[in-house]
Design a protein around this nucleic acid. Structure first.
Lengths: 157, 157
DNA sequence: TATAATCGGGACTAAATCGGTCTGATATGG
DNA sequence: CCATATCAGACCGATTTAGTCCCGATTATA
């Protein structure tokens, strides 16, 4: 299904929730109730996101989490990378070796191209945009139609 | 890792091999040795590809497989769909319901956008191009490359 | 300083998925 | 009729994934 894992799905939701109020510090429990995701799972996700440098944590009483950067400066690609590792559709497109066919594999180069396109798609959307669905709806309307993706008026900085 | 399954990887290799000689009919065993993929797995893949309408089979003695259409008219996206089902990064972007948060899920709309971008990336490469790696590299660069993405100060808020 | 709150890092289990194999039925050509 | 090959589907072992839990480290505050 070319799916990304459910954890990653939850993770982006979590990040979107954090992006909705970037200043405030919330603990894992609060975030769990806000996102309707179970508390242990939220905790696990937050750990990974902290390790990935996308979320800052403050420990101790009244501690909690908040985004490490402004929502405009965090892309969906980064979230995916933090939770799933490098973005690579096929094995060979990442480690570049060991599949045995390698030299005879005509498809390899093209997978790279496809892979890059996917990566760019994910890098093209920031958390700020994820948190502002209405605005993005407009984008989608105009973008999905024949004039493909080239004119996405996406924000950045 | 945002990976597609190994089966799909093999499947595209298989299709690429078929595309290299679209006219000739080869049986599962021959294709297995050509692709260096195990025979039972090749057989399984071919079944799915036949069901997906991408490959034609002729039964009986001297039977075998060949592409149902010209390589130029089969995209990687179709291969992925035949082997993995609909292209959907997140569950909600395909069935549109049942996740419980739905209405409150700000991220949903944007996943659609991302999803479409990925889909277009996969639809932008045909089997003919996969079988001729160098040429396609040039073509896809201009064809896919969706998101330059940064040109609207309007969406700042 | 004592206590409560909160994150951090793993270990662990259960379930789903995936890769791969095998068997029997069906169709074709000689 | 027989040999060859696809077709359909059951099946299993291994890996991955989702989710939970525990315990040590850290901090605020009374």
């Amino acid at each position: 299904m070319l799916k990304l894992s459910k954890l990653t799905d939850y993770g982006t939701l979590l990040m979107t929730t954090l992006a909705a109020a970037p200043e405030s510090v919330r603990n894992a429990q609060e975030l769990a109730t806000e996102t309707h995701v179970s508390a242990p799972t939220v905790a696990k996700l937050l750990k990974l996101l902290v390790r990935g440098g996308l979320v800052e944590s403050t420990r101790g009483a009244h501690g909690g989490y908040r985004l490490a950067r402004a929502p405009e400066k965090i892309t969906v690609a980064e979230v995916v990378r933090a939770l799933e590792g490098p973005i690579a559709l096929t094995a060979c497109s990442v480690h570049g070796g060991g599949c045995g066919i390698e030299e005879s594999c005509a498809a390899r180069v093209n997978w790279r191209v496809i892979n890059d396109a996917v990566k760019q798609a994910l890098e093209g959307v920031t958390l700020a945009e994820m948190a502002a669905p209405l605005r993005s709806l407009l984008r989608t309307r105009t973008a999905i139609q024949p004039p493909p993706l080239n004119e996405f008026p996406l924000t950045r900085f």
